[in-house]
Design a protein around this nucleic acid. Structure first.
Length: 592
RNA sequence: GCGCCCGUAGCUCAAUUGGAUAGAGCGUUAGCCUCCGGAGCUAAAGGUUACAGGUUCGAUUCCUGUCGGGCGCACCA
């Protein structure tokens, strides 16, 4: 193992976070070294205990007056030690020795906070560090390659994707990127429920529509799928595969052909929609493969071996009570057919068997009652208690402006069966970037009011353009400067000491911590929140500090800072799956 | 009836898992372009964080109860 030659002496493989130049493009958080620094101080004071690290809290304070990093460690210790918090803080402050290349020092403030402040030299160096790191800035190896499977969307293949699927797709894809950026080995997966009677029903519905083309009598199934896409599927089959379709209608067991055709085509359609939306899945996992490979039967055997299955009322029950569920669940019906729970167990055993150490599932609001059940079932079959983590993606209310009411009201979808707004409609209406930005802007667990009119507007009222505009504006400045032969100062040698310059640098410095927090809390919305604030910080800098001026040295220094801001904005947008445009053109205002 | 999510400025939402003076956008009002993109910036106004208790140095955050909104409560998936 090689070691970085700078003062941190960190193993080069885990990368050095200072601008020492030994491992450019690599960035380990200040967080890591501050944690170690506090650990040493506690050991020196004799206050160390092994469970301490898990509780150690470091944060970037809201108020810049409180420094660049802060910890409430002394306040927590004071309770255990039964000593005044200020006294504990003072003693810790005497013993911590933050790297002088990075921190100007530590101060005790308020009831007993320890506040750390970056050194001027570190701040001056930072823009060059960020630009050198490029797309890697913000990423850090926190999880050491922990394999995590994120399952999301997983819509039934019986119809087009809806707006909640669109929200889940935006959140899931962002989560995968966030986990990768924080050192997880993350994979996205789509679970296809192709084995239930829903798919049979779709097949029957399509067959009935094909029969209309064939002028054959065939009853449309009760509760069949009546959306216009069923008719379109039928027409496509009739035009492209007429002889097979006719044979399928004639045979008593011909429904299977329609089911398989409908399934393939629906899945292709969903795959195309999601790909155009930037949600790529490493695997589309079919439930039917679990049955075919014997894994469902295997799961049942594993459960029985553990003695958590019993018979009652002609069915077989899983004793999920005792593992956190409030009642036991049927896994094999009295007619011998498994319920959905059993393949779900088999599926998660398969996830674990494929090497994933953790599973994150994104489910719609109608499944939240099932969370406890499945988690209990997985514990019953012997998986780690916290193997499965479920995030509920809450519902979306599409809103439209109502002139009569004077404000936006929920957009009423057509009452006709099967008519609803699809993911594709939404992209055509407001654009993929805008849709993703709006979905990611809000906390996943909260209901979302999606204002269609606002999202469609290409003007200053649309928050989605604000961040993109800042990025495009920086690109424009760099183009303008290049035309005058000015490029960013690569060495970061020019002092940037205007208040707006320092405020911007400090904000850029906190990006890796925001990424870490967003990934850890599974809260992608922290990224757009941060980016909006960062864009605002940049605009303030832009208005206060003329970038390209007659002073070439100063111009190059400010160009470097602008380039660093662009790097952070681009990296944040990339995490969201939103494009970072080099230039933006306003659409024609004349459009109705 | 039971369970889960939510209740923060007129509206839509933040608030770094219990931290310091609760912040943005939209809307309202008043300002800022001889100059790098005005899709921008500055400022004002707007709050008993639904309500009542509790836990502690400290609560929008945690606990209990009440009110209000949403979603679930199958041998459907």
């Amino acid at each position: 193992m090689s070691w970085c030659t700078c003062s941190t002496r960190r193993p080069a493989s885990t990368t050095c976070w200072t601008a020492c130049g030994e491992t450019p493009g690599a960035w380990t958080l200040v967080w890591t070294t501050l944690t170690e620094c506090l650990e040493r101080a506690m050991r020196a004071a004799g206050w160390w205990s092994d469970e301490r690290p898990a509780r150690l809290e470091l944060a970037v304070p809201r108020d810049p007056a409180h420094g660049d990093w802060t910890t409430n460690l002394a306040l927590l210790l004071a309770r255990e030690l039964k000593r005044p918090p200020r006294a504990v803080a003072e003693e810790l402050a005497r013993r911590v020795a933050p790297d002088p290349e990075v921190f100007a020092g530590v101060e005790v403030a308020g009831p007993g906070f320890l506040n750390f402040r970056y050194s001027p030299a570190f701040l001056r160096r930072l823009p060059a560090t960020i630009v050198a790191a490029g797309g890697a800035f913000g990423a850090a190896d926190h999880a050491h390659g922990l394999p995590v499977l994120v399952e999301y969307v997983s819509a039934n293949p019986t119809g087009p994707l809806n707006v909640v699927n669109a929200r889940a797709a935006a959140v899931g894809a962002a989560l995968v990127r966030l986990l990768e950026a924080t050192g997880h080995q993350a994979a996205g997966e789509f679970y296809v429920n192709d084995a239930g009677n829903q798919v049979d029903l779709l097949g029957e519905s399509v067959a009935a529509r094909v029969a209309e083309w064939a002028k054959t009598a065939r009853e449309f199934p009760e509760n069949g799928y009546r959306g216009s896409y069923v008719g379109e599927l039928a027409e496509a089959l009739w035009r492209e595969r007429r002889s097979e379709a006719e044979a399928g209608l004639a045979r008593p067991d011909g429904a299977a052909w329609f089911r398989d055709q409908a399934l393939e085509r629906m899945q292709d359609s969903q795959r195309r929609d999601l790909a155009s939306y930037g949600a790529e899945f490493a695997l589309w996992f079919r439930e039917s493969s679990l049955h075919a490979s014997g894994r469902v039967a295997g799961a049942l055997a594993a459960l029985e071996e553990r003695g958590v299955v019993y018979e009652a009322e002609g069915a077989r029950w899983l004793r999920t009570t005792g593992f956190g569920d409030d009642k036991d669940r049927v896994i094999v019906r009295s007619n011998g057919v498994p319920t959905y729970l059993l393949p779900d167990i088999a599926y998660h055993l398969d996830k674990r068997a494929r090497g994933f150490r953790h599973a994150v599932n994104l489910w719609g609001p109608d499944h939240h009652a099932y969370v406890c059940t499945l988690q209990a079932a997985l514990r019953a079959v012997g998986l780690e208690p916290d193997f499965l983590e479920v995030l509920i993606v809450q519902q979306v209310n599409l809103m439209k402006f109502d002139p009569a009411a004077g404000h936006s009201v929920p957009y009423k979808m057509s009452k006709r069966a099967g008519e609803f707004i699809t993911l594709r409609d939404l992209i055509e209406e407001v654009g993929a970037d805008c849709a993703k930005f709006f979905f990611l802007m809000r906390s996943t667990s909260a209901h979302l009011d999606f204002d269609l009119d606002l999202a469609r507007q290409q003007n200053d009222e649309n928050p989605a353009y604000y961040v993109q505009y800042a990025h495009a504006r920086i690109a424009s400045i760099l183009r303008f400067a290049a035309g005058r032969g000015l490029t960013p100062d690569p060495g970061g040698t020019v002092a940037l000491d205007a208040a707006e310059e320092i405020a911007l640098i400090r904000r850029l410095a906190s990006f890796p911590e925001v990424v870490r927090g967003a990934a850890l809390a599974r809260e992608p919305h922290r990224i757009p929140t941060y980016l909006v604030e960062t864009a605002a910080e940049f605009h303030r800098f832009y208005h206060a500090c003329r970038v390209v001026s007659d002073d070439a040295a100063r111009s190059r220094g400010r160009l470097l800072l602008a380039a660093a801001a662009r790097t952070v904005l681009a990296n944040g947008l990339a995490l969201m799956g939103v494009t970072a445009p080099e230039r933006m053109e306003r659409a024609a205002e004349a459009l109705s």
